[in-house]
Design a protein around this nucleic acid. Structure first.
Lengths: 208, 208
DNA sequence: TAGATTGTTAATCGATTAACAATC
DNA sequence: TAGATTGTTAATCGATTAACAATC
């Protein structure tokens, strides 16, 4: 359990956790690797191998305790408490994500949005959080002890704003811009490119 | 060129295309695998291998013609014309994506949004596109000849709505719900789970 | 005990990378 | 021609899967 868990495995652990929550809600108390794997869309052998990274959690001939496994995963994934996040670039998409309740439901709280033109951004209206000027970011991050950011600025300014985030002490960036960010090794970046997802889909849809 | 292009390669082709567009804008007419790979965040050997799937497009000792490669990729990825898309689930995230200009800029047009309660959805206001009742979906899809959909309904109704989409003739679904969709083999699904992206990031951010 | 299902090993598969001959 | 860079082969790497002994 104290060896490095592979990246792809960590990602799947999140998927398993969501499946377990669903089973929990349905009142299931135990689940086999077979059943859980089916719900998560993976092979049973892969599920067992993934879970083995966390120690021997199952009972042979029986399966896994839903509740216990759920708690184990929450512990591993470090989501016991609310995670504060900031958002940079309150444009079209950024504004949407600030109001997205999917984050809140999953334990992430967007504390504030930042924009080079906070006034214009605020004019969109309907924000629960403050929208501040980029210049206020460093102080805010230090005081609120935030280490995650969502980046929603256009490609042209993405690298520059990423630099500011890193400078302010941000450790992890969820990047929606179409640019490959250059960041120090200790900063983690996950990229989400909605246009590429659609483009990819359209490629495979055509050869139906 | 007529063998199957691997899934991951297709995804990277989209990334390369975006890098080429940027080079184009900067007035570059040629690029080496080394330079393009760096911009895309991959190894040069991988870039060359990926491009080799499309035929021999480079000139040895010289590199690739930016414009020609760009056009080749556009052709392969099938993005010569505007792609019509519909969106199901005009809630928090769905409403945001309907207004997201990132799709439009990249050649995808969301023709309409559908919701079990179109009235409530419309009350959000500010839509450029019509918001229709789910019941109107089948007719709409047939008439407008759409084969791609963005799915933004809550987990509980995701499978049911996916069934309706498939029934109506949709070939490809960009799924934002946290559920593994069961669809026929010929229907393609790409999953985007923003909460999982953040959770994943927070895991790695902690072990800084 | 008999039946079921895990944890783990070993085999397979596919994707990435290094290296270099081909060639512009 | 000399220098550069591709296209491609072969080696490496990591991830997935099958299979089964361990064990509840």
């Amino acid at each position: 359990m104290r060896e490095e868990i592979p990246r792809k495995t960590v990602y799947r652990l999140s998927v398993y956790l969501r499946c377990l929550r669903r089973l929990s809600e349905l009142g299931e108390s135990a689940v086999s690797s077979d059943a859980l794997a089916k719900a998560a869309g993976v092979k049973p052998a892969q599920l067992r191998k993934d879970l083995a990274h966390l120690g021997a959690l199952g009972k042979r001939g029986f399966g896994y305790e839903v509740r216990a496994l759920e708690e184990k995963l929450v512990g591993i994934l470090g989501r016991t408490r609310l995670q504060p996040v900031i958002l940079a670039g309150v444009g079209n998409l950024g504004a949407a994500l600030m109001g997205y309740d999917g984050f809140a439901k999953e334990g992430f709280e967007i504390l504030a949005g930042f924009d080079i033109d906070a006034g214009r951004a605020k004019a969109r209206g309907g924000f629960k959080q403050p929208v501040l000027e980029m210049g206020e970011l460093p102080d805010f991050v230090r005081r609120a002890v935030v280490n995650m950011a969502v980046l929603c600025v256009p490609g042209k300014s993405a690298q520059e704003v990423a630099n500011q985030l890193v400078e302010a002490g941000i450790q992890a960036i969820l990047n929606f811009s179409p640019i490959l960010l250059q960041v120090p090794d200790e900063v983690m970046v996950n990229n989400v490119n909605l246009a590429i997802e659609l483009e990819n889909l359209s490629y495979f849809a055509k050869r139906l």
